[in-house]
Write a protein that binds this DNA or RNA. Structure first.
Length: 550
RNA sequence: GCGCCAGUAGCUCAGCAGGAUAGAGCAGCAGCCUUCUAAGCUGCGGGUCAGGGGUUCGAAUCCCUUCUGGCGUGCCA
């Protein structure tokens, strides 16, 4: 809010002084408070084009800018930075403005209602969700919340790969376990099959309800039946895990359904019409090399079955047909090699490939007693999303996942998370919120309320710690837009932590409630209530609860 | 081999569309509860921003290069 105002002030000053300004300059909050509340590099950036030295340039600007009463001071520093100190009165007005906005603070129409489809998690329906899925869930959901906040119309979608090879293997695994339960000697459990305990549980459940009846069906029917059962159960399991994580999807799209609707044939015909398929070695290929991929890709295998790529491409095309103008896919690191062919297909079919945006999440490594935990899905030896939530709780897990940027590997120390102590930074933020609530409760008991706006009242606020809190809060609306543009929700975690730090400093320095100084108390209550709203907004965007008490 | 991601304090990581003295948490040491929540605060120590070149008023940030680690490179999904 204030940044933009200052930038406008500088532009006005430049116009008045008839100085050129073709290059962009920035307004920043300096890390060193000695350099003021805000600072601009305008003189450094624009000196050259005006044939002045940065210092001369800065002097002219400063003279003009000092006429503005919102600035307590405007100084030149270093090689030609212009440093501003903001008058307390401006901060006071800002505070009131933020307070009035309540839960809407930070909301904007920046996205102009653009329809964005965020696809994430989309794990194979062959087992419980793992840690990477948990990371994807936290990341995708927070991105969704952020985009909504700044005026996009986003939707969350989960693509269910319920038609491929893997599901067949799942059905076979289930059948073997079922035979085992019924006393049959199945020999050694096949290497490729799913070894996880959950398959046994599913088999037990099926055995309890249907028993040997399963084996009275003809083989084909039986396989279908087992598949249906396993898919239903596992999807429900995944849905519940996500719910525990406070992640909901607007839409679950089934690959099988898509196939039944004939999209596979449709896509193949599109690609054929576009003249980019050919036959070789009994298979049908897509010449993706022509469109930037590093090798051609098989569409239909020599056994007549279709590759994963075809229905997935079809699925992406339905997103466009459904009116989305931005498609964001959140992928794990194992999909790197996959994206060029998807982009190639977009190009081949004359869609703007820039509609499709991929965010790669790097892998998550778990550490236990300083050792990396080795996991193997095949062997059924994995730490699941549910395990993690049970272990560290939803709030902590979400915070951990969001606090690291997507492109960085994430080392998750289980011992540390297990300790459930103050080592976990999420408590730091939640504690600030609970603390504020506690003060507000106390104030109510003493019949002191923050509600009423009076100039005399907010003018009581002038301490550096108070100004710092207000300054931090005013930065939120721009920050949210910046975060969305960069697709980097971890910046929100940083911000939240910083805001809380400012509050804890303030708290330790000053008393809020002081019956002898009612107006000061009221003004500080107004301040901390505003911090509470702001903090609540941040936590909510991350899907972390904001406790009233701890 | 090629591609992607990473290398910043003892550990985990911020900072990177160039900006002033590189930050936080944890770990270590020393303090702060008769007053609104000590899951907090204050102070101290801790760095060749992997190495080397370059671009410029200025580089952790941009370019080139070397080294190290991870991942990817299926007629799997």
């Amino acid at each position: 809010m204030i940044k933009k105002q200052i930038a406008d002030n500088v532009s006005e000053a430049l116009d008045k002084l008839k100085l050129k300004h073709t290059k962009e300059f920035s307004v920043e909050i300096p890390n060193n408070p000695d350099f003021g509340d805000y600072s601009t590099n305008a003189a450094l950036m624009l000196a050259k084009e005006n044939q002045l030295t940065p210092k001369q340039m800065a002097e002219k600007l400063v003279k003009e800018l000092r006429k503005n009463k919102q600035f307590k001071s405007v100084e030149i520093a270093g090689p030609g930075f212009i440093n501003f100190r903001i008058a307390a009165s401006l901060y006071q007005i800002m505070l009131w403005d933020i307070h009035k906005q309540g839960k809407n603070f930070g909301s904007s129409d920046y996205g102009k209602g653009e329809k964005v489809l965020i696809e994430f998690v989309s794990a194979n329906p062959t087992g419980p969700l793992n840690i990477v899925s948990a990371r994807a869930a936290a990341f995708g959901d927070t991105l969704y919340r952020l985009m909504k906040k700044v005026g996009y119309e986003p939707a969350r979608e989960y693509y269910v790969n319920d038609a491929g090879n893997q599901v067949d293997i799942l059905a076979e695994s289930l059948e073997l376990r079922l035979r085992e339960i019924q006393g049959e000697n199945i020999g050694e459990f096949p290497y490729e099959a799913y070894h996880g305990e959950y398959v046994k549980h599913l088999a037990q459940k099926l055995n309890a309800t249907e028993g040997v009846r399963v084996f009275m069906m003809p083989e084909k029917e039986r396989t279908e039946h087992l598949k249906e059962f396993a898919l239903r159960e596992i999807l429900e399991m995944q849905r519940q895990s996500l719910e525990r994580f406070d992640v909901q999807f607007d839409n679950w799209v089934s690959e099988r359904t898509l196939r039944q609707e004939g999209v596979v044939e449709e896509v193949l015909s599109y690609l054929t019409e576009a003249n980019c398929t050919y036959e070789k070695d009994d298979a049908i290929w897509f010449c993706s090399t022509k469109y930037g991929d590093d090798k051609d890709r098989v569409l239909m295998k020599s056994d007549g079955s279709i590759t994963y790529f075809v229905p997935d491409l079809a699925y992406h095309l339905t997103k466009i047909q459904r009116g989305y103008t931005k498609l964001i896919d959140i992928f794990g690191p194992d999909h790197y090699g996959y994206v060029p062919r998807l982009k190639a297909a977009f190009r081949a079919l004359n869609y703007d490939e820039n509609i499709l945006e991929i965010i790669y999440l790097q892998q998550v490594n778990l550490y236990e007693e300083g050792e990396r935990v080795k996991m193997s899905k095949r062997a059924g030896k994995i730490v699941t999303m549910d395990d993690l939530i049970s272990l560290v709780g939803k709030d902590a897990a979400r915070y951990f996942f969001i606090a690291r940027k997507a492109s960085a590997h994430l080392n998750f120390d289980l011992d540390l998370a297990l300790q459930k102590s103050n080592e976990n930074p999420v408590y730091y933020c939640q504690y600030a919120h609970a603390r504020i609530c506690s003060i507000l409760r106390k104030a109510r008991q003493e019949n002191i309320y923050p509600r009423y706006f009076k100039h005399a009242l907010i003018r009581k606020l002038n301490r550096p710690e108070e100004m710092a809190l207000i300054q931090k809060m005013t930065a939120l609306p721009d920050l949210l837009i910046d975060i969305v543009n960069k697709r980097e929700p971890h910046l929100l975690a940083n911000y939240t932590h910083e805001l809380c730090a400012l509050f804890h400093h303030f708290y330790n320095r000053y008393r809020v409630i002081n019956p002898k100084r009612i107006e000061l108390s009221q003004s500080r209550l107004l301040l901390i209530e505003t911090v509470k709203h702001t903090l609540g907004i941040c936590l909510d965007l991350m899907g972390i609860s904001a406790p009233e008490k701890m």
